[in-house]
């Protein structure tokens, strides 16, 4: 474990907590894409299939349980909670999951470290996570008003993957034959997708104005 990875995991945890706080305290999910939340639940399910078979560390297991539990809770809140679901903008959140999941599944079947069920599912989870934010970014473009919590949530979600890239560089330099192209490429694509969001988020912070994404 290195400081980059620990900070990355804590940033990821913070992003989930910010979102849960928003949904749980003000009972609103305005501006949040249910599609992205569902894709994240799928990502964690496919990536943590080994949660009961391979024990790596208490930290690893506890974090997996937290990410699984929170991602499904958020989906449950947005779908079934009688107050929260009212603030879900389903007419604007129209990105089709299948357009993201199918190409990722095909790619995982073609490019993986080993052709076993768990390995392909693990690979699929990385490709899917790289593009899972797209429905959310599309929704942001459509719904002009981005409230602070939503902006912070997306910023933290993007920052965690950028920190993971630092972790991968650190491990590549310090650990012999530590090479994992699949997470590296997926993580790079994922971080780049946040590129313009980071740019506008930084501008809104620097000019102290409300976050606005160009149409």
């Amino acid at each position: 474990m290195n400081i980059f990875r620990l900070t990355a995991d804590m940033t990821h945890l913070m992003s989930v907590i910010v979102l849960l706080l928003k949904i749980h305290t003000i009972k609103s999910c305005a501006g949040i894409s249910l599609k992205t939340q569902e894709l994240y639940a799928i990502v964690f399910t496919c990536r943590y299939l080994d949660i009961f078979t391979d024990f790596i560390s208490f930290y690893n297991t506890i974090m997996k349980v937290i990410f699984l539990w929170t991602s499904f809770s958020i989906v449950w809140y947005m779908r079934y909670h009688k107050i929260v679901r009212r603030s879900y903008d389903k007419d604007q959140d129209t990105f089709r999951h299948v357009f993201l999941m199918l190409p990722c599944l095909v790619l995982a079947l073609l490019i993986n470290e080993r052709f076993t069920f768990k390995e392909v599912m693990w690979t699929f989870s990385f490709y899917l996570e790289a593009v899972a934010i797209l429905p959310q970014l599309v929704l942001l473009q459509r719904t002009r008003n981005i409230d602070n919590l939503t902006g912070q949530y997306i910023f933290l979600l993007g920052a965690y993957r950028a920190l993971y890239i630092l972790n991968w560089i650190y491990r590549y330099v310090t650990e012999p034959n530590y090479v994992h192209w699949i997470p590296w490429m997926s993580g790079l694509v994922q971080t780049l997708l946040y590129g313009d969001f980071f740019y506008y988020y930084f501008l809104s912070w620097k000019n102290n104005v409300k976050l606005q994404l160009p149409a």
Partner: peptide, 10 residues
């Protein structure tokens, strides 16, 4: 290495 060694990250 077997599945989990190379998968120590979240």
């Amino acid at each position: 290495e077997c599945f989990h060694e190379s998968k120590d990250e979240l």
